[in-house]
Design a protein around this nucleic acid. Structure first.
Length: 734
RNA sequence: GGUCGCAUAGCUCAGUUGGUUAGAGCGCCUGCCUCACAUGCAGGAGGUCCGUGGUUCGAGUCCACGUGCGACCACCA
């Protein structure tokens, strides 16, 4: 305050502010809340007779009681209708006071009658007009909202009672021309919901325009980024049209304004240290300004006042400026922009580089959660029911960048289930890691030492780490959460764990050791990756892992970095073929109604990839409940049996003739054929268009050609199967 | 009045530079209490990507207009 005052940026001003008649204090714009779409009210048309007993002028108002303070009537300078009245006086009804008719461009010709009553003490626009035309400002209301002696016969009345009486009196005198229903823009006190009175008052103000300049420049130069950047426009618009800030409040709590008035000579002293005597006349009789400061006047100092400012401490030097401010968009004005202004003013630098504006949590109906609406669930209850990690992970997953979140309590099941899944995966690992400490992989072991599933999961882990990093760098926290969810659940749990069970439960100790090391490595990395999203469960599991820990807490363990040496394209393609094959067999089994307990045989026409099939054989047997995988060398492919094509591997047959109804097999084949056929038609149509072939990039056209060829092959195969089946057991005619 | 955002499966939402068959979770249907997990496992159904027009060989994606929601700003008395 003192610094700004000494720079001439703080002044005591006499102007219209928002006044709460209940809290007895001035309010800033953001504390005076606008009701959406206005509130039901009236527009009263009142005749102000001419001084010469002529018809005078009709004005429209939503607050007739303020007419007691009218000191003029304004019309637009170009409004022909009222030209003859300019410079003349009309009579203010009820008080019978002559007031002048003035011309001011602020008046909207098309609103109401085009003539507006001017009440400088009770309306911001009117105050401006009053200044311009030297109209007196007559305050007709007390700070409690009662009519003052200026209101003549209405003195002492509560404001709305006065309104009723005035309307009635006007009507009785035939001066009320008409009354319209009207939605009135109204502001209410954020604290007590009382209707705000625009009120002429002396308050302390900060001159904002000079402070705004560096804050505008910060964004324009790229020194400061708002994320998502569409908020930049909002930020700039506010700063470029900034209004002076009313910082005094007539409340009993808050920081006192450091201003003293001398009771004897009237001298104003502004000082950091409480003065004992007046610097002018030496009088000890000083009275401190009774007002306190707006809370934001201390909050805007937060980036440095929290670190011992104005002392120059190592902490302050280390952490000012900082990297990122995370906050909600609804306080860009009162807090973010002001912190930037204060940062430049008091520290000479922007307080942060990035401002990440997080989602606002809304309820299931899209309404902002708020205490006053009572639509916010109790987080402690949710945590009791679902867990803190579950809540955090759910919210993060639900919050896309730049969009608000619709949250309802049941959604927390998502995070709860995931936490449970992780917990159980960890239990599985701990049960199988053995008692002795296990060493994790520090670097990729020599070729041939690791099994396919190990190579695969370690490779996939690198992808997960890289994707998580990229998402975090871009502030796409929900993407990071989703990446980890999928890796943990769909790759690690669904496939890796299932693939290594055979080894872990088997007798090959050497192989078992390799798997254990992989299992531990991946789990350790998963916990660290997930820790920011699920701090509690990850710490708990991490501490339980039988290994040397690089830190006492996972909180300070290094965050995983992707290592290219672990990437293994060969293993990835082998396991994706395996997944495809197993899924296909399960699908056939399920669609044809084969009991899950029944073991099947499969035959694979491997197109010269017999070794690949052999490498996957054990896994196929275990995961698809198959007791034999037969390789078809040069033998003819079985015709009329259900099959699936696995890209890069070959055709997988599940011989079922005699086991299931031929009609069911035929039905399945027909469905597949229809699907293939439809797709092929689409591709062929595309390739048939000359401009596609001519103008699309070659690689795209090639891709389509290859696709068409593959589909044609597939179609031929399916047709052959069908034909054979039909010959063996012709469909019965209806 | 001005500025901005959103509209994709029954629900809640992904889909980042235009390019194979548009994805996930929940819900739904079928079958499983299989020795980490039924807060689970396996399989499946379900979409005129708000409408109209345009750009393009090609549009959920880009442009224009419209419709419906939402947010913010503003001196309509």
């Amino acid at each position: 305050f003192v610094r700004l005052y000494e720079k001439g940026l703080i002044y005591r001003g006499h102007r219209i502010i928002h006044w709460c008649i209940r809290c007895h204090t001035a309010l800033s714009d953001e504390e005076a809340v606008t009701t959406e779409g206005g509130e039901p009210g009236h527009l009263w048309y009142i005749r102000y007779p001419g001084a010469d007993a002529g018809p005078g002028v009709v004005v429209a108002t939503t607050r007739p009681e303020t007419m007691l303070g009218d000191t003029g009537v304004a019309v637009h300078p170009d409004d022909e209708r009222y030209r003859r009245l300019l410079g003349q006086c009309v009579i203010l009804p009820l008080l019978d006071r002559p007031i002048p008719v003035i011309a001011d461009p602020l008046v909207d010709k098309d609103f109401g009658t085009g003539a507006v009553k001017v009440t400088p003490a009770h309306d911001a626009n009117d105050f401006e007009m009053g200044q311009r035309h030297r109209l007196p400002a007559v305050c007709i209301m007390s700070i409690e909202g009662r009519i003052t002696e200026e209101g003549g016969p209405y003195v002492g009345l509560e404001r709305f009672e006065a309104r009723r009486r005035i309307v009635a009196d006007l009507e009785a005198r035939g001066l009320l021309v008409k009354t319209e229903a009207y939605r009135v823009p109204i502001r209410r006190c954020q604290r007590c919901d009382t209707i705000i009175e625009p009120y002429l008052s002396t308050q302390w103000f900060v001159k904002m325009a000079p402070l705004a300049e560096p804050a505008i420049e910060a964004v324009k130069s790229g020194r400061l980024r708002l994320i998502p950047d569409r908020w930049t426009g909002v930020y700039l618009h506010w700063l470029e049209n900034i209004r002076d800030w009313c910082i005094s409040r007539q409340l009993w709590w808050g920081h006192r304004i450091p201003v003293w008035y001398c009771d004897d000579c009237g001298k104003v002293t502004v000082a950091r240290v409480d003065p004992s005597v007046c610097g002018e006349c030496g009088s000890p009789r000083l009275t401190q300004d009774p007002d306190v400061l707006d809370t934001w006047f201390s909050s805007w100092l937060w980036p440095f006042s929290t670190m011992d400012w104005p002392e120059d401490t190592p902490t302050l030097r280390r952490f000012y400026p900082t990297d990122v401010l995370v906050t909600a968009a609804d306080i860009i004005f009162f807090w973010v922009a002001r912190m930037v202004m204060a940062g430049y003013e008091f520290m000479g630098d922007c307080p942060f580089r990035d401002v990440y504006l997080n989602s606002i949590v809304r309820d299931g109906h899209g309404r902002k959660m708020s205490k006053s609406l009572g639509n916010s669930p109790d987080p402690l209850e949710i945590i009791d029911t679902y867990g803190a990690d579950a809540l955090r992970f759910t919210i993060v997953s639900l919050a896309p960048i730049g969009q608000d979140v619709r949250y309802s309590v049941e959604k927390t099941e998502f995070g709860r289930n995931f936490a449970n899944k992780i917990w159980n995966a960890a239990r599985f690992a701990l049960m199988n890691l053995g008692d002795a400490p296990v060493e994790s992989w520090a670097a990729p072991p020599p070729a041939g030492k690791l099994g396919l599933p190990d190579r695969w999961i370690l490779s996939r882990l690198q992808a997960a780490i890289a994707d998580t990093q990229a998402a975090l760098d871009a502030y796409r926290f929900n993407d990071a959460a989703t990446t980890l969810y999928r890796f943990v659940w769909n790759e690690f749990c669904d496939w890796y764990v299932e693939l290594v069970k055979g080894t872990l439960y088997g007798a090959n100790e050497a192989a078992k050791t390799q798997v254990r090391r992989t299992l531990l490595t991946v789990l350790d990395q998963i916990m660290r990756l997930l820790h920011p999203f699920m701090p509690f469960v990850t710490e708990e599991i991490w501490q339980a892992l039988p290994m040397q820990r690089p830190a006492a807490s996972i909180m300070i363990a290094p965050y995983p970095q992707p290592v290219d040496a672990w990437r293994d394209a060969e293993a990835e393609s082998a396991i994706s073929q395996l997944i495809e094959a197993v899924t296909a067999i399960r699908n056939i089994r399920s669609e044809l109604g084969i009991a899950p307990t029944m073991a099947l045989k499969v035959r694979v026409a491997a197109d010269g990839r017999g070794d690949a099939v052999r490498a996957l054989e054990g896994f196929i047997k275990a995961l698809a409940r198959v007791d034999a995988v037969e390789l078809l060398g040069d033998q003819p492919r079985p015709i009329g049996e259900p099959s699936a094509l696995v890209a890069g591997l070959g055709e997988v047959f599940v011989p079922l003739r005699g086991v299931v109804d031929a009609a069911a097999v035929r039905e399945r084949l027909a469905r597949d054929l229809a699907k293939v056929d439809k797709e092929l038609k689409g591709v062929e149509a595309k390739l048939g268009r000359p401009d596609f072939v001519e103008r699309a990039p070659e690689e795209i056209v090639d891709k389509e050609r290859q696709r068409a060829a593959a589909l044609r092959d597939r179609r031929a195969v399916l047709e052959r199967h069908l034909a054979t089946l039909n010959a063996a057991a012709p469909a019965t005619r209806p």
